[in-house]
Design a protein around this nucleic acid. Structure first.
Length: 510
RNA sequence: GGCCGGUUCGUCUAUCGGUUAGGACAGCCCCCUUUCACGGGGCAAAGACGGGUUCGAUUCCCGUACCGGCUACCA
């Protein structure tokens, strides 16, 4: 019988969740759901200095928006609670101490000043960043260089210390990465990582192994930036005697900045004018808000879709996927090895596609919010639905609806009078005066009839409809945009149409 | 510097040794549209480089270059 699939997303609550983070969640989630497994969220808050108030709640709101529901988490509970590492603090020490007893780790009493001194002393051109490793540990203050009595005395005196892993010399550690295949490391190249910090908290290295073991995680997916420390984790699984229960690993490729090189950061978004976080994040310290995809006008379906396609595809030309399709089709072995540059234009295209696929009913609620923010009150739901259907093809972001459809609900705020005034003459003025009379008397108020009447009247006045339609458009919408003019007239109604025509005629006269 | 990873159009990518190297975004052109879009059609655009292996390499191997990640009592 095979092991129950259990995966985890293990974020640190240090700020907003960015694209790479959400994609990691997504791939974890897709894999779990595809295999009928569990998706766990574990909060890795072992660094108290970096803890940010509100970041954890933000993570769960973001997941909810994306349609990702954890099976177990600090919010949702579960059989392996608690799911916050700070609340699991008591768990870790015993394992670190066991490692010391077994000779796989040691106490180190070096102060930050000692470490800095070591780094400056051994720094050379060839080795700009000396590591606390097998070549240097003999020169430091630790339970390897001190006598047992000295160590006991220091410990009894309450001297601050950390526990470091004792990396073996010149051994090869290898593992099979689901994306990259076999990856090998020489243990001499990796330093003696701190496992248990001076404050009694574990570092990521210890905590991730202990918790993945305790929580029976079957597959561990994380960003590529973790690859270099993988040998530490592998060794820990071994030293702790859990080798047979070690999860399968996959290191996901990075999401890169669109221009230049390097990992995508919040700064790139600020610099280039696009969101990087899933939703708005306000830093509680600076009170500075960073815009998110959600608030910028992205549909969660589009956000999930575009993230999934960053580094994965199903081998066909299909680009639009629902969450259910992704769950059915996702496969880790089709995930790319190389990082992908984030392209905001393409991201917007996904959103546009999703907007086109959604019904007015489905879009209504979120669009209402943008109108409200813009100070436009929409009371008529039927009118809103009609307006959405009319303009959604030309909206890339949900926020675009304000610009594209506000004239359905209020008089145009700006009227591009310059577009008509130069060619405005008495004949046109007469035509519109007659049009008002005709429209006042129309028995029906349908776009096709309005168009017919308009054209017949134009012909009677020996005017080309083409010269008159732009003025009509300016009168009704204020600018050179929007759906068909007669559709608009039909939608806003007789009274509103006539009012607007009159108003602009007045403007043209003065 | 060291270690690890990566490398197909500007960008995201397809290709399980044999293809005119396909699609999408962006760009450009045309059609549709008496607005702006949508839509339809078209153009342009790629295997980092050098060696092997092979009848044949984008694909397999090696080297070089370039890019990235890591090199904290951060994750």
């Amino acid at each position: 019988m095979t092991k129950k699939i259990r995966v985890r997303f293990a974020p640190s609550p240090t700020g907003g969740l960015h694209l790479g983070g959400v994609r990691t969640v997504l791939f974890n989630y897709l894999f779990a759901k595809q295999n009928g497994g569990d998706f766990i969220v574990r909060i890795e808050d072992t660094d108290q200095t970096r803890f940010v108030e509100g970041a954890e709640a933000y993570i769960f709101e973001t997941l909810k928006w994306c349609g990702i529901v954890p099976d177990e988490s600090p919010m949702h509970g579960g059989p392996f609670a608690p799911y916050r590492q700070s609340e699991r603090k008591a768990n870790y020490r015993q394992y670190a101490e066991q490692l010391v007893i077994d000779g796989y780790a040691y106490y180190a009493f070096d102060t930050p000043a000692d470490l800095e001194a070591m780094r400056t002393e051994y720094k050379t051109a060839e080795n700009p960043s000396p590591q606390y490793n097998h070549t240097l540990r003999d020169k430091m203050r630790n339970s390897l260089t001190l006598t047992a009595d000295e160590v006991a005395t220091l410990l009894a005196a309450g001297t601050p210390y950390v526990i470091r892993i004792k990396m073996p010399v010149n051994e090869t550690v290898s593992f099979n990465d689901m994306i990259r295949g076999e990856v090998n490391f020489n243990t001499s190249q990796v330093d003696d990582k701190v496992l248990l910090k001076g404050d009694g908290m574990p570092t990521y290295h210890l905590a991730v192994v202990v918790d993945d073991y305790l929580m029976k995680i079957s597959h561990a997916f994380r960003g590529e930036e973790w690859l270099p420390s993988a040998p530490v984790h592998l060794l820990l699984w071994d030293y702790l005697g859990w080798k047979n229960e070690m999860p399968e690993w996959a290191h996901l490729p990075l999401i890169l900045k669109p221009d230049g090189n390097g990992k995508l950061s919040k700064r790139d978004g600020d610099r280039l004018g696009f969101p990087v976080f899933a939703s708005d994040w306000t830093d509680p310290k600076t009170n500075e808000t960073t815009i998110g995809f959600k608030e910028r006008g992205f549909l969660p379906e589009a956000f999930v879709n575009l993230l999934a396609m960053l580094g994965w595809n199903d081998g066909t030309d299909q680009e639009i996927f629902t969450m259910d399709e992704l769950i059915a089709k996702f496969s880790m072995d089709r995930v790319h090895k190389g990082g992908a540059k984030f392209d905001y234009e393409k991201a917007k295209w996904y959103n546009h596609e999703w907007i086109k696929r959604k019904s007015a009913k489905e879009l209504e609620l979120s669009i209402q919010k943008y109108f409200a923010e813009a100070g436009i009150t929409v009371t008529d739901d039927a009118l809103l639905a009609k307006a959405i259907d009319l303009v959604k093809d030309r909206c890339t972001l949900l926020s675009d609806f304000v610009q594209q459809a506000s004239f359905f609900f209020q008089l145009p705020e700006q009227i591009d009078i310059a577009a008509v005034k130069p060619k405005w003459d008495e004949k046109k003025n007469m035509f519109f005066a007659e049009l008002i009379r005709a429209y006042e008397l129309s028995s029906v108020w349908e776009a096709t009839d309005l168009e017919t009447e308009f054209k017949e009247l134009a012909a009677a006045n020996q005017l080309k409809p083409g010269e008159l339609m732009l003025p009509l458009r300016i009168m009704l919408v204020g600018g050179k945009f929007g759906p068909g003019v007669f559709e608009i007239a039909a939608t806003i109604g007789r009274h509103e149409t006539i009012t607007r025509i009159k108003k602009v005629m007045g403007l043209l006269h003065s």
